[in-house]
C-alpha cells in the first residue's frame, strides 16, 4: 500500500470534527485512493501477519468457507478439551453452572468440528496443532477470557463469511451454528461480568436520541461487528503452532 493521504487536523469537539470516529474515516480513505498520485498498487497488504510459506490454505469457494469454519471449530474444540484437563475445571463442583457450561461447550464444539470434517471428507484440511501457551488453564479469569475471545471471534467470523457461501444449504448450516456460538459467547461474557452479553467491543450498540424516542430513532445499529476472513485468521493464528497456521486469502 502506498501513502495514506494526510487528513485535516481535527479532533472531537472542534467545529471541523467528524461526527464519527477518525478511525472510520481512515478505514475508508486509507483505501489506497492516494489522491495525490492516484496510485493503487496491488492491495495485498492484509496478509502481513501470516507466516510466509508453510500456511495451510483453507481453499476457495464453499470448500474454503467450510474449511475456514472447520479450522476455527478445531481450535475451539481443542481449547475446551484442554480446559477440561486443567485445574480450574477440575475444581468446579459437580452440578455447578460453570461445570455444566464447560461440559456443554466442549461437546458442542467437538460436534461442530467433527461435522465439518465429515462434510468436507477428502477436501478437509489437516488436524491443526494449537498453541495455548498464553492461557493459564488453572486460572478462572484466564480460561473465561480466552473462551470469550474464541466465542466472540467465532460469531464475527461466521457473520463475515456468510457472504462468501454459495450453496444455500451451507448458509443455513452456518446460521444454525453461529447462533449457538452467540449463545455461548453471551453466557461466558455474563459469567465474566453480568449484563455484558452484548458489549460495544462486539456490537455496534444503539442509543436512542432521548428517553421518548420512537423506535429506530437514535445512533448506532444494534448489529454484531462481523469480521472478514483475513482479520479472523490473523487472530486465530496466534493460537496455532507453526505448520498449523492457516490462510484464508482465497475466500473472496
Amino acid at each position: 500500500m502506498s501513502s495514506i493521504p494526510s487528513l485535516p487536523p481535527v479532533g472531537p469537539g472542534t467545529a471541523d470534527a467528524p461526527l464519527l470516529p477518525r478511525r472510520s474515516f481512515l478505514r475508508y480513505s486509507g483505501a489506497g485512493l492516494a489522491v495525490g498520485g492516484l496510485l493503487l498498487a496491488g492491495c495485498d497488504d492484509d496478509n502481513d501477519d501470516i507466516t510466509p510459506g508453510g500456511t495451510i490454505d483453507v481453499g476457495s469457494g464453499d470448500t474454503g468457507v467450510l474449511n475456514y469454519a472447520y479450522a476455527l471449530e478445531q481450535l475451539e474444540a481443542a481449547f475446551y478439551a484442554k480446559v477440561k484437563e486443567g485445574a480450574y475445571y477440575k475444581g468446579l463442583a459437580g452440578g455447578s453452572l460453570e461445570k455444566q457450561v464447560f461440559d456443554d461447550l466442549a461437546i458442542h464444539e467437538q460436534i461442530h468440528a467433527d461435522f465439518f470434517k465429515k462434510v468436507l471428507d477428502t477436501k478437509a484440511i489437516k488436524a491443526l496443532e494449537p498453541d495455548f501457551s498464553t492461557i493459564k488453564f488453572d486460572d478462572r479469569n484466564s480460561v473465561l477470557g480466552a473462551a470469550k475471545s474464541f466465542e466472540d471471534l467465532g460469531v464475527a467470523a461466521y457473520n463475515g463469511a456468510g457472504r462468501y457461501i454459495q450453496t444455500p444449504a451451507y448458509l443455513l448450516i452456518a446460521g444454525k451454528i453461529v447462533s449457538v456460538e452467540a449463545r455461548h459467547a453471551a453466557l461466558i461474557r455474563d459469567l465474566i461480568n453480568y449484563n455484558t452479553f452484548v458489549g460495544s467491543d462486539v456490537v455496534d450498540l444503539f442509543t436512542p436520541t432521548n428517553a421518548t424516542s420512537a423506535p429506530g430513532v437514535g445512533s448506532g445499529t444494534g448489529k454484531e461487528k462481523s469480521m472478514m476472513p483475513t482479520d479472523v485468521v490473523n487472530m486465530a493464528n496466534k493460537f496455532l503452532k507453526d505448520g498449523s497456521k492457516i490462510s484464508a486469502s482465497n475466500i473472496k
Binding site: G162, V178, F197, K223, S226
Partner: peptide, 30 residues
C-alpha cells in the same frame, strides 16, 4: 435463520441480517 438464504442475492443485506441474527441469539442466551 430461515430467511437468510433468500437474501443471498444481496450480500450487504445478508451480512446485516446475519449481524442482527447473532445479537438476537445473545439476547436469548441472557
Amino acid at each position: 435463520k430461515g430467511g437468510a438464504t433468500k437474501l443471498m442475492s444481496n450480500k450487504d443485506i445478508l451480512e446485516a441480517a446475519l449481524n442482527i441474527h447473532s445479537v438476537e441469539a445473545r439476547h436469548s442466551s441472557h
